[in-house]
Design a protein around this nucleic acid. Structure first.
Lengths: 231, 231
DNA sequence: TCGACCCGTGACGAACTCGTGACAGTTCCC
DNA sequence: GGGAACTGTCACGAGTTCGTCACGGGTCGA
């Protein structure tokens, strides 16, 4: 975390200054933007290590900013924490679907802020999630070449969908995946499948993973997340 | 990894030069090609130790290049790293299916590049896959010179296709092979053959292998795999 | 020409996989 | 504390996949 640069985007001066204050005190370099256009420009130009983005902005709202960030090559994998007053699940779901990495609801404590910032920075530094023929997360090993999976050293026998589901969850470890996202990633095209079916497969996968099942966490109201274990 | 020769295939001058720069600096001999035809020719002529292949090429694209490499005897087991900007899963899956050994997504760091190159060279050196006169995996011995096969010390009499199928499975032991891959490897050219026919030959091969048949595993929904018994 | 062998395909049953409804357990909010 | 929303688990039927059998066409040598 030392010397990381953070872009804070918020149009309310009060909140902006609170954010800047806390983050600066923790030793981060902070830059700011007060609207969507400025956010995009700064993100592109300064390549910050993390962005904190308010959803409610004049003109272009947070979703659109996020969507555009994800669309551009140079910012597509930039860690983003969404900031919102709304507790609505729909909002959060939409946020994760558009590609948010984490979420903070107002009002928030300084401690919550820094914890989330640290966690996200650590995570994105840990692994430039890329595709290799073998993925290891804690006690879980997935070997793409052999198409085999081990949990705590023991081979586990997975069906095609279970394997695929695990593969996706491991690749996107640390990030919440909505049921819809999982459907899209695991079940090819927009299959006409109940989102509840995902739960079923998660359950089956968990029983087969044994003790490691606890790493596959439920995020109530949103979806699932495979815990990212930093080394 | 000292003195290994690498063939880099990319039509974009910028990326090509970056690749050449980094690889040369690491001490590799580097040759280049800017399109599919040139890649095939160079691979054939220079027998590089590794190929880095961009997916997006003018004319013949990376998949086709890879497919042709895998189809020709002298290049069929050449280690290939695919290079792509696309993060899509489909692309990756397709890449592995066609026979890529690894994958790098743009943008990549110099470090990631050299790590993957080293890993792959090390790996392919470790298992001198092809053209050794004799392949032994557990109780199964295939003697290329004598064109004979033994299972648990007993000679087994195989037909031409059975022999070829076993040979391919042994060469690629530990890796899942889809029916399509097997068709391509065993039945030369894109024969118009039902994929189910592969099953039939696997079954025939199994009965002849006796107890060793259990090493030739079915991976439901995917294909087959010969269990790798590591020394 | 004939028989022996090899090979590709269709058919079919067994085993497995998967999606869904139902219901119980849990969590969250008021 | 009570109710609503959400999640875990069970059971079951439909669909898929795979192993095996049977058969017919093709090839090759005698």
């Amino acid at each position: 975390m030392p010397d990381a640069q953070i872009l804070v985007v918020d149009d309310e001066p009060d909140i902006l200054s609170v954010l800047v204050y806390h983050l600066s005190r923790e030793g981060y370099r902070v830059t700011t933007a007060v609207n969507g256009q400025g956010a995009l420009t700064s993100a592109e130009a300064e390549q910050p290590d993390l962005i904190i983005l308010d959803l409610m902005l004049p003109g272009m709202d947070g979703y659109e900013v996020l969507q555009r960030l994800r669309g551009a090559e140079s910012t597509s994998s930039m860690p983003v924490i969404l900031l919102t007053a709304r507790r609505e699940e729909d909002e959060r779901v939409r946020g994760f679907e558009v590609g948010a990495d984490d979420y903070i609801t107002k009002p928030f404590s300084a401690r919550e802020l820094t914890l989330r910032v640290e966690a996200l920075l650590r995570r994105s530094k840990a692994e430039p999630v890329s595709t290799s023929r073998r993925v290891t997360v804690g006690p879980v090993v997935l070997d793409r070449e052999a198409h085999r999976v081990f949990s705590e050293g023991v081979e586990v026998d997975l069906t095609r969908l279970e394997y695929r589901l695990l593969e996706v969850m491991l690749e996107r470890r640390g990030r919440v995946q909505t049921r819809r996202q999982l459907l899209q990633a695991v079940w090819d095209t927009n299959a006409a499948i109940e989102t509840r079916t995902v739960d079923m497969h998660v359950a089956r996968l968990r029983t087969k993973l044994g003790n490691a099942a606890s790493l596959l966490e439920t995020v109530r109201g949103i979806g699932y997340r495979f815990r990212a274990l930093d080394k």
